[in-house]
């Protein structure tokens, strides 16, 4: 018997067909003879046959209590929903397709996009939706034929939902750690910070599902919520979506908040002395050049910049 080459696909399929024939309760002596004859025709046939026999014996090693198709079928059918839940992804009440195919899962369930600090990125999805990812953002995109779900792990996302015909009737949802935002044909912005989600709506309506409440949000409104608390609905601040134009819009913004905003877009430490923290700043600042933004701020306010290292910048009061 030669082991030099791997049997061809065709030979493997034929060996499988013979074995399936022999496993039948209606197998005849003629079948057995014909199978034996086939094996003797070519060493490659015999090699494939022997490998198949060895493989099939693996199944016989299971003890009786585990040799039960229901056990494996049960595992299989728990499927995708459980996988998503296991990953901590919110699953809406609409049923998700059963069947867990590893390749599909990798490509669909864990299709992820991310940006690093200072980077932005635009993604077109299969349904025609457009996602803009702001700095330091990570998302998973889950399209499974029934739902369209974006899991926002961190950072900020601007969504323009698409309306491709083949996706009609599939809810479009963005899940954060604090809740789920369901789009009703719309443009909106979602920011995930440590314990807080902030949603701003530009067009149409979204429905915010928190643990205990459902809150509709109209165009021109914004809402901040944590696990414990839901703020009142406010008018949308222009600064909330100006990142899309790569600008930071400040209107009488506290210096401390201005620096917190800017530090989302640059590496390292950016802070200020308490003495200047409450100074107010207004203006439009470039987000793709934070050095320049800081210089502009320093010219407008009575402050000095202290650079300890390249990654550590402190804003202090001007010396009298």
């Amino acid at each position: 018997m030669s082991h030099s080459a791997t049997p061809t696909r065709k030979t493997i399929e034929l060996a499988s067909a013979w074995m399936a024939r022999l496993w039948s309760e209606s197998v005849t002596d003629e079948d057995r003879d014909a199978c034996k004859h086939w094996r003797q025709q070519d060493p490659e046939h015999e090699q494939a046959w022997q490998a198949l026999v060895t493989m099939a014996e693996r199944f016989d090693t299971l003890p009786e209590h585990a040799s039960n198709s229901a056990l494996l079928t049960q595992i299989h059918q728990q499927g995708r929903r459980q996988f998503l839940q296991w990953l901590g992804i919110f699953v809406s009440s609409a049923g998700l397709g059963y069947g867990i195919n590893k390749t599909d899962l990798i490509q669909q369930t864990l299709a992820d996009y991310s940006t690093s600090v200072g980077e932005t990125r635009t993604i077109q999805l299969a349904d025609g939706s457009e996602l803009k990812l702001n700095t330091n953002t990570a998302i998973d995109v889950i399209f499974n034929g029934k739902d369209r779900l974006i899991k926002l792990h961190q950072g900020e996302l601007f969504i323009t939902t698409g309306h491709a015909a083949s996706f009609r009737g599939q809810p479009f949802q963005v899940a954060t750690r604090q809740g789920v935002i369901e789009a009703l044909g719309t443009r909106f912005n979602v920011l995930q910070q440590e314990d807080i989600t902030t949603v701003g709506v530009i067009e149409d309506t979204v429905l915010v599902h928190t643990q205990h409440q459902r809150i509709p949000l109209q165009a021109g409104q914004q809402l901040r919520f944590s696990d414990k608390h839901i703020d009142s609905t406010l008018a949308l601040e222009p600064s909330k979506t100006s990142w899309i134009q790569r600008k930071l819009v400040a209107e009488q913004m506290k210096l401390s908040q201005f620096l917190t905003e800017l530090s989302r877009y640059r590496r390292g430490i950016l802070r200020c002395d308490e003495a200047v923290a409450d100074l107010r700043i207004s203006g439009v600042f470039p987000l793709d050049n934070t050095d320049k933004a800081i210089q502009q701020m320093a010219q407008a306010l009575p402050v000095t910049l202290h650079t300890r290292t390249r990654y550590w910048l402190t804003v202090v009061a001007n010396k009298e």
């Binding site: 696909r9 060996a15 499988s16 074995m19 399936a20 039948s24 494939a48």
Partner: peptide
């Protein structure tokens, strides 16, 4: 059924 079994055997082999 016989075809299914054959198909599964091939998949296991591969």
């Amino acid at each position: 059924v016989e075809k299914y079994v054959a198909k599964a055997l091939t998949a296991c082999y591969l």
